[in-house]
Design a protein around this nucleic acid. Structure first.
Lengths: 241, 241
DNA sequence: CGACTAATTGATCCAGTTCAATTCATGTGG
DNA sequence: CCACATGAATTGAACTGGATCAATTAGTCG
């Protein structure tokens, strides 16, 4: 999943700089991707359907308009690692191999917009800002993957679950949604394969968090965060359960 | 670490190529990064010294000329995750946060060339190919991080060690070095923190591989691969120890 | 309502950790 | 050049967090 901008945060240093003066006739200005996407084909995907599979030709890049997506790798023996979840506003399918490296499966009914990869690379060859945006997006995703690596390599089961819930809560905050209520469109199995744990462990850790009054679970797809600070201390390894 | 080309595989447009003639006034041609780097400041770093730390301002991008580097994240409580190792030809320090997200430590005496980040972003704003190359490099690194994620999340200790040795062997093959002999410039502790295991487990797994006649360990920094196929079957989960 | 799938909970097990010695390298000063 | 100091690696024994196996229980969809 990718951020390819959107947000109005001009924070990142290098970047993107004043666009004026870059507006050359042929290439669209910055934001061209979004503009192109807006004109792109809409695709509806039913829950559980795959959008693409590892090994498929990378013909298109997609932006998620609605619904949640699970991106994963799987071995012949069935072991699966969920790499990321993508939500509305995220881009999926970017990369520079001619083939997708991941499987992308809709967790619920999904609406996408698609852009042919060839179009994207043609535009990027003309507009330096577009290439830079793509670079920025990949850098962002790389940073997320590195954090995830830390979580899986070093944290305990309880810490991993706490990190996971916090990440969803923070995403809500960024999108101006309630950070105190987290919806889980994925199954326990998806969470387990994301965190390198089993469904039983996920379930037990959620129960422990509930008993510690840190969260509440009204339905199994809906987490209320009762004590965000405790959750952060847990995620940071400053506390245990 | 990043590949931003190097190797004599003409596939990527700007292979190392002759540097002469690249000095064009406004925007350097493709391969500009390498050319600029060639003119960049050289920096020598002693073994165990840090090149930069997480949180430092990202003022420069580096290319490794000689020596090996360990890139890691660390928590206040001392838990450490090694994210990657960088070797000659790799770039380190790329990214779009204003601050480094990783610590970079020399594992042995290292020689680097550096390019100010500001220069790089200025050039990339003019030359679409440069931005695209940076995108490509990040995409490559992201793919590697995702593989690493799978390894740590799903594979057993023996499989992880096998994957690690295979990755080094394949790197050798790419660089036209002997894929049958792998040098380990890092300590067992670095390997352990890279694979999410302990030094004892690394040691035990290497011993098991040695007893199974899959590798030989003449010195603890030098691995001879005796049975590459067995190693690959192990890494792929098709065999056990 | 009944059938099926997802989630929870409990009991047992085991891969990898932790703790504790050795052993092996490497470098340093006499 | 050797003896000794120091940190790295190996090896062994005991322990444990999370996995596995095994029922229930709770949702959800025809």
């Amino acid at each position: 999943m990718l951020y390819l901008d959107s947000a109005p945060n001009s924070s990142s240093a290098h970047a993107v700089a004043p666009v004026r003066g870059v507006a050359i006739p042929p290439a669209p200005a910055v934001g061209g991707l979004e503009a192109c996407m807006a004109a792109g084909a809409v695709r509806a995907v039913k829950a559980r359907e795959h959008i693409f599979n590892a090994g498929d030709a990378r013909t298109h890049v997609f932006r998620v308009e609605a619904g949640a997506i699970c991106l994963y790798k799987i071995m012949p023996d069935g072991r699966r690692q969920v790499i990321d979840f993508a939500y509305p506003g995220d881009y999926i399918g970017l990369g520079c191999d001619p083939e997708h490296a991941l499987n992308a499966q809709a967790l619920e009914p999904v609406r996408l917009r698609s852009l042919p990869a060839a179009t994207l690379s043609r535009l990027a060859g003309r507009d330096p800002m577009l290439g830079l945006k793509m670079y920025e997006a990949m850098a962002h995703e790389l940073a997320a993957a590195q954090d995830h690596l830390f979580t899986i390599g070093q944290r305990s089961a309880a810490e991993r679950v706490a990190c996971f819930l916090l990440a969803l809560s923070r995403r809500n905050k960024r999108r101006d949604k309630d950070p105190g209520v987290v919806v889980l469109p994925m199954t326990r199995s998806d969470i387990a394969d994301f965190l390198g744990l089993t469904i039983e462990t996920i379930s037990r850790m959620l129960t422990k968090l509930r008993h510690a009054k840190i969260i509440d679970l009204e339905q199994c797809t809906l987490v209320k965060i009762l004590d965000g600070n405790a959750l952060e201390r847990l995620a940071g390894g400053e506390a245990a359960l």
